[in-house]
Computed example of a mutant assay.
Amino acid sequence: MADQRVAGVDAAGGALGLAGAVLLTATCAAATYRASAAGDVASVGFVIVSYGALLLLLRFLREYELLAPPEAAVRREGLRRRVWALCTLLTLIFAWKVASVMTWPGVAVGVWAAAVVTSAGGFVLLFRQQRRRL
């Protein structure tokens, strides 16, 4: 019964995931084209790194979901580390982009502080908090 439920979710999620990936690719291609046409090398780099990191993050999350806990505890731990690193990378590059357009320095500092607190909180929740046993 559980296998049928998972298969149904995979079929529905697969089509939705594919549509999302196509839309993400199209928007990233358009943003890269506009930024390169304007000569904005930093924005081109931002889009390319964000796109690559997001695709890797989605791949690792999917792989993490599909692993069975008892057999693959070491592999899941490695995937958890990769997911946290990619989330931290995305948080920091988005904070860099947002903080660069802030006119008030205090707001930019707040953006960076929020990024650091978010990444540190994710680290604590993923690696340092004791896992409850069911």
Score class of each variant (00 low, 15 high):
Ala2Gly: 13
Asp3Tyr: 12
Gln4Asp: 13
Val6Ala: 13
Ala7Arg: 06
Ala7Leu: 10
Gly13Asp: 03
Gly13His: 05
Gly14Tyr: 03
Ala15Asp: 04
Gly17Cys: 03
Gly17Lys: 09
Leu18Ser: 14
Ala19Phe: 13
Gly20Tyr: 09
Ala21Asn: 01
Val22Met: 02
Thr25Asn: 08
Thr27Ile: 05
Ala30Gln: 10
Ala31Asp: 02
Thr32Arg: 12
Thr32Pro: 00
Thr32Asp: 00
Tyr33Asn: 06
Ala38Gln: 14
Ala38Pro: 10
Ala38Tyr: 05
Ala38Val: 02
Gly39Met: 07
Val41Thr: 12
Val41Gln: 14
Ala42His: 05
Ala42Ile: 08
Phe46Tyr: 14
Val47Ile: 07
Val47Ala: 12
Ser50Ala: 14
Ser50Ile: 00
Ser50Tyr: 08
Tyr51Val: 01
Gly52Val: 02
Ala53Ser: 01
Leu54Cys: 09
Leu55Ile: 01
Leu56His: 01
Arg59Tyr: 15
Arg59Ile: 00
Arg59Phe: 14
Leu61His: 11
Arg62Thr: 08
Tyr64Arg: 07
Ala68Cys: 02
Ala68Val: 10
Ala68Lys: 12
Glu71Gly: 01
Glu71Trp: 04
Ala72Met: 06
Val74Asp: 13
Arg75Cys: 00
Arg76His: 07
Glu77Ser: 11
Gly78Cys: 02
Leu79Val: 02
Leu79Cys: 06
Leu79Met: 08
Arg82Gln: 13
Val83Trp: 01
Trp84Thr: 10
Cys87Leu: 14
Leu89Gly: 04
Leu89Tyr: 01
Leu92Gln: 06
Ala95Ile: 06
Ala95Phe: 05
Lys97Gly: 00
Lys97Arg: 15
Val98Ile: 14
Ser100Gly: 11
Ser100Leu: 04
Ser100Asp: 11
Val101Pro: 10
Val101Lys: 14
Val101Thr: 09
Met102Leu: 07
Thr103Trp: 11
Trp104His: 13
Val107Ser: 13
Ala108Asp: 01
Ala108Lys: 08
Gly110Asp: 06
Val111Cys: 10
Trp112Thr: 09
Trp112His: 13
Val117Leu: 15
Gly121Thr: 03
Val124Phe: 15
Val124Tyr: 15
Leu125His: 14
Leu125Gly: 07
Leu126Val: 06
Leu126Pro: 10
Arg128Pro: 00
Arg128Phe: 06
Arg132Tyr: 05
Arg132Glu: 00
Arg133Cys: 07
Arg133Gln: 14
